[in-house]
Design a protein around this nucleic acid. Sequence first.
DNA 1: CTGCCATTTTACCGGC
DNA 2: GCCGGTAAAATGGCAG
Lengths: 81, 81, 81, 81
Amino acid sequence: MTDVGGIAADQLASYVERIEKLEEEKANLMADIKEVYGEAKALGFDVKILRQIIRLRKMEEHERIEQEEILDVYKRALGMV
Amino acid sequence: MTDVGGIAADQLASYVERIEKLEEEKANLMADIKEVYGEAKALGFDVKILRQIIRLRKMEEHERIEQEEILDVYKRALGMV
Amino acid sequence: MTDVGGIAADQLASYVERIEKLEEEKANLMADIKEVYGEAKALGFDVKILRQIIRLRKMEEHERIEQEEILDVYKRALGMV
Amino acid sequence: MTDVGGIAADQLASYVERIEKLEEEKANLMADIKEVYGEAKALGFDVKILRQIIRLRKMEEHERIEQEEILDVYKRALGMV
DNA sequence: CTGCCATTTTACCGGC
DNA sequence: GCCGGTAAAATGGCAG
């Protein structure tokens, strides 16, 4: 299982590489996002509020999903499958 | 400053859109990363350790050494050898 | 600063102890909470929903605070101190 | 099962109360812990490392050793010496 | 027993 | 330089 002498070392290296590549892309995106916030700020928008907006819009979706889940739970509880 | 009446509303909408688009891409990447960890796990690698490796490699070498040294000092002070 | 040979070792040990003690109490509380959820579940309540209730009630308070904060931000933005 | 009409409503309210009370105590403890870390920091201790220590001490000794060993194996496999 | 979701914890980043 | 809040990582519980 964990004999990382032999070909497993190559596999391990491969996984590490793939993850690091993806993480780098992610870091770039995060930097982009930050930049956008910076721009907005430079134009006078309140970043804190802006973040709240983003969060709320995300939540609205989640909330909808969640509501559906609750509904579903109750349906099941009532045998309405 | 924050009078979001007039063209500013458009700007605000634009920023929100841009951010949400970037965040979506980010979410996708995160899903990809998760998937890679899943693969590695399926082949018998220890995911927890793998994450540690990724974390360690993110640090500058000297920084990592330094932290390990401090940790060691604390361990000795506490008799954790 | 970090010469942990000498009295500093005692200090360090003291901090570690204090933290561990508090963490233990916290762990106990968490166990208690879990137990309560377990009881409720045993009586037929849906734990997931119950958690949502708790979360919502907590949020309502936070939301209120948050609203006040936003209001404050806008007041400041408008020079209404 | 989840018909919360009748006496069950009282039960539900009771559970909510109990949980909220426990959560409040938990919040207090968390504040205390934070305070202790703050004190330690004020005296020159490295909080981040201190947290690592606490985490390490939470593990069983042999478990900790084992993890360190696996980590070492992975490091070698990746040429991180 | 595995994968998923929620919770908790850690680290980061900005303002004061 | 610290402190607060905010987001990411990691851990743990639960269901299927």
